[in-house]
Design a binder for these strands. Structure first.
Lengths: 208, 208
DNA sequence: ATCCACCTCCCTGAAAACCACTATTTTTTT
DNA sequence: AAAAAAATAGTGGTTTTCAGGGAGGTGGAT
């Protein structure tokens, strides 16, 4: 029997999942919570095998919740469930230990498939997203803040100073191509999508 | 018997609504479509009393669809159904003839209530939204950042969420040109040079 | 001695951002 | 009722970033 906790702030979604799973005899809904903090509280008293995790929630969001749950209960599988198909969420969430990523426009059958897959120990990723992982088996899921090299930190600092690549190149005395390489590596390491993400990360991690 | 068409691109949501309405004998789901154009096609061959309309859809969005439906079938009631953070569309949809506005985090009972209300001819609006029709508390007084308009704040928020102009346009349901205008004004007002500067300012002023 | 992380540099094509305008409509204020 | 502010949308252009490749050189660790 698979015990499932649904984490989503929309009752409609919960009901939808309930309906879909009602035909599945060996999946049992062990609980329903609206956001991350509530989930952590529930886990103290309730056993679960898998958590269906919405990413966009009020209070503690799904990304943070994924990390917290995995820190405390590494055996609980986490299947992320999101309407956003952006790469950055996928990366971030897997870096924090998620076991699957399902889009909300998935069909009913796919939901059941995905739950069973992650419980079995597999990684499940929605069709539309799988291309993201084909290329890079490189960075294994180390859910710690990525370490930046000193040169990358230099570049990040300059980016936060609102400089563009050519200006950065001039002040670091390197080619603008090199700056672009560092920038690309930064995006990858930090899990950002663009400059906005880099600056946000830098400020939140007190780099600047 | 109330004939209902559900317009939403998430199968999960449809299933949830189905489950909630299964207990209601006099509401019948006459159809299910994923976006506006599909809805219009369906209405040519199917009778309906009320449409539960998601606002944020691929293809034709709910605002445009509302207008089109009302032009052709003024008797069909339209109950808009949207995320909490799409409050700003309330005015727009009512201007186009909507009969109700329900948040997606509404409880099951509220959904049934709302459907019945609009069919009866009433206007139904979610509790959390009624304040919109009273007076507008100025955002600037609250946030001690008198510089930005509320729409600019919306855009700034989305920028910090690492979205590009087209993505922002899609989620605010405006043209990407408009987003660019807001962005240009933001750069001017904040005194930033580029995206990096905007994000830095936003974080330092606790906008996000 | 050789593997590896890091730094360096280069390329292309596409997407996105930025700039400088004009201009209409809607909403709020006076 | 008029004026001001905000929100909307557009044109047409330049610059910058992004996503991919590849590739040579260094210095430290195994």
């Amino acid at each position: 029997m698979i015990r499932l906790i649904i984490t989503d702030d929309h009752p409609i979604v919960r009901d939808g999942i309930e309906l879909i799973l009602s035909s599945e005899k060996n999946i049992q809904i062990a609980g329903y919570v609206r956001e991350g903090a509530e989930l952590l509280r529930m886990l103290e008293g309730t056993k679960a095998d898998v958590i269906l995790m919405d990413l966009n929630m009020p209070g503690m969001n799904g990304i943070e919740a994924t990390q917290r749950v995995k820190e405390k209960y590494p055996n609980i599988k986490i299947l992320c469930f999101s309407q956003y198909d952006e790469k950055r969420f996928v990366r971030q969430v897997f870096k924090r230990g998620a076991n699957g990523y399902l889009l909300k426009n998935a069909a009913a059958a796919e939901l059941i498939l995905a739950i069973k897959a992650v419980v079995k120990g597999d990684i499940y990723i929605s069709e539309d997203l799988s291309d993201i992982f084909e290329k890079k088996p490189k960075r294994k899921s180390k859910y710690s803040t990525p370490k930046l090299t000193s040169r990358e930190l230099d570049v990040l600092n300059e980016i936060c100073a609102e400089k563009n690549n050519r200006e950065i190149a001039r002040s670091l005395l390197i080619s603008h191509n090199t700056v672009e390489t560092h920038r690309a590596n930064l995006l990858l390491k930090v899990g950002a999508k663009n400059t906005a993400g880099l600056v946000k990360w830098a400020l939140q991690n007190q780099i600047v």
